[in-house]
Design a protein around this nucleic acid. Structure first.
Length: 304
DNA sequence: ATAGATGTTGCTGA
DNA sequence: ATCAGCAACATCTA
């Protein structure tokens, strides 16, 4: 579920409710959710306890919290996977069915006292990662001006909304690859933050087939794709952002809102709205792709 | 009811 | 070195 816009909504919530606060205690309820923390759940709990959270940063779908009070500089990385949520709640709130990690916060004003990581499918997780410098020496992502990035996210390309990235960068990255266009934009090492839903939406908006070969892609096509990616993500963020003022940093709420305005994803057998507007009749088709589904209009997304 | 699908990432082997 | 396929998991639907 969570792609760039949803994760950014979560980041803003964390910045508002959690930044500046101290971790009083940490409780791992399911070790599988910290499996990428190689020193184990106990070390995870002990290392974090007493730290103060100094920032909330995002690159693509990776989130991290800056930590003050450690001997060796490191950050708390969180990835939501397919079903992860970060919730800011009162300790009295009943435990969620899939509650995996409870981070108890020292009292601050009348802010809620817990940050919870909830994850049904356990593709997501949390772990502590040392810092390295970004390959280009520029700021690591949204929420920071520093070039320090968690080692675990150092291979992630700049994301769709990153101001230090251009359409030309995307063109160069695509041209280097030898694969199909949709595969490439889902590759977080080419451009980050794009998942299956917004990939289909952006390709539809740019009138491009995901089956185009990246090695022969043309600049005008990449320009259209880049514009579409930025537009789709910006609109989704605006829709999801309406709920972030609430106490709960809720990923489900954030993406469900934008789902009403999808043009391709999930619309198998329904009319292509752009074709209809142009006086044509065309039905959105679904094809198996990378173990998932792709939704496209066969008429206005030609393969050339 | 049972197989297949579900928004992600990282590892493996070709 | 690059790329495609699969595994990690729980739940819902056809």
């Amino acid at each position: 579920m969570p792609e760039l816009p949803e994760v950014e909504v979560v980041r803003r919530g964390l910045e508002k409710w959690v930044r500046g606060r101290t971790l009083e205690s940490v409780e791992v309820l399911d070790p599988r959710s910290v499996r990428r923390h190689l020193d184990g759940p106990q070390d995870f709990e002990q290392t974090l306890t007493g730290c103060t959270i100094s920032s909330a940063v995002r690159r693509g779908k990776f989130l991290w919290l800056g930590l003050d009070g450690l001997e060796v500089p490191a950050v708390l990385v969180a990835h939501l996977g397919m079903s992860g949520q970060l919730l800011v709640e009162e300790p009295e709130a009943e435990d969620e069915k899939h509650l995996k990690v409870r981070l108890s916060l020292a009292q601050h004003l009348d802010y809620p006292g817990e940050l919870r990581f909830v994850d049904q499918r356990i593709f997501g997780g949390m772990f502590i990662s040392p810092l390295v410098t970004t390959p280009d020496g520029l700021p690591a992502g949204e929420g920071t001006t520093e070039a320090a990035i968690p080692q675990a996210a150092a291979h992630i390309a700049r994301d769709v909304l990153d101001p230090h990235r251009s359409a030309e960068d995307l063109y160069v990255a695509l041209r280097k690859r030898s694969t199909q266009l949709k595969r490439a934009i889902l590759d977080q090492g080419v451009i980050s933050g794009v998942g299956n839903i917004y990939a289909d939406e952006a390709l539809w908006q740019a009138k491009l087939s995901g089956l185009l070969k990246t090695a022969t892609i043309r600049r005008p096509e990449v320009q259209r794709l880049n514009d579409a990616l930025i537009d789709v993500m910006t609109r989704a963020l605006a829709a999801g952002g309406t709920s972030f003022d609430s106490l709960y940093v809720n990923v489900n709420g954030a993406s469900g809102y934008f789902a009403r305005s999808l043009n391709a994803y999930g619309r198998e057998g329904k009319e292509c709205l752009r074709c209809a507007q142009n006086g044509r009749v065309s039905l959105i088709r679904r094809d198996a792709f990378m173990g998932r589904s792709s939704y496209t209009c066969p008429v206005c997304q030609p393969r050339r």
